[in-house]
Nucleic acid binder design. Sequence first.
DNA 1: CTCACATGTTAAG
DNA 2: TTAACCTGTGAGC
Length: 295
Amino acid sequence: MPEGHTLRRLALDLTAAFGGEVVAVSSPQGRFAADAAEIDGTELVGADSAGKHLFIEFAGERFVHIHLGLIGKLDVRRGPAPPPVGAVRLRLVSRGRPSEALRPGGREADDPGWYADLRGATRCDLVDASRKAAVIAQLGPDPLRADADPEKAWRRIAASERSIGDLLMDQAVLAGVGNVYRAEVLFRHRIDPQRPGRTLRRAQWQAMWDDLVALMAEGVRLNRIDTVRPEHTPEAMGRPSRVDDHGGEVYVYRRAGQECHICGTPVRTQELKGRNLFWCPRCQPTFRSRARTAP
DNA sequence: CTCACATGTTAAG
DNA sequence: TTAACCTGTGAGC
């Protein structure tokens, strides 16, 4: 489930589980083995996310740069690490505080500690601070970062002929938004995904940005994507809930052919640059630039 | 069981 | 534009 909220949540969980501790780093599958050996037994300083990128910092400004791609997963769990299941590319196992770890046994017997397993990621590299900075530099503003500047995204959007649906998924324009948040934020603001970026008004962008800031923060908190307003929840409307492993309550994402929660019109879908776009043709009417007639 | 598809990105053609 | 990467899930037989 990797949109920006997932990576931020992982960064928080990793920091809580391993921050300030000496960590055993291994690569049971072998593909990260050489890099793992370099940081094995050193202190995990903390973790941070930028867009869909995750950086786990170790002592000496060494960072494990992870991108989960579409199917990658990082499980952070309490307890002793079991034998690895499947192709675990990276495994972290806590050993305790640096001072304790010097002693044999390290961690207290009644503290099970934590372990984390990474599998299916498209990227897992050991990088230095400059490489980390370079990755972040090519990203647009991230609604989950307090220091993000939405004006940077607006300048790109306002100058672009490309559709807003396309622009929202471009990580150089806006970082962390994926296919679910794209579909949902456009629905919530009644904007046609095919509408050219340059035809949006500033206030519309600002409202969408503010909404993403709140929605994604909630996504971090709940560890899933919920976008349905209180008046449209299953309880409020007396309709069945669709919450499952794929996430929370949504308006249009993956609901092609089903009735719009608000107007009942069948939700539409169309492929855009290899990804499925979903929208309600009535709530998000096709944008037509206003033809100006001479007086 | 097999198969299609998935909250993503990169590189080849 | 297409395939490749890689894992898990759910639908269908």
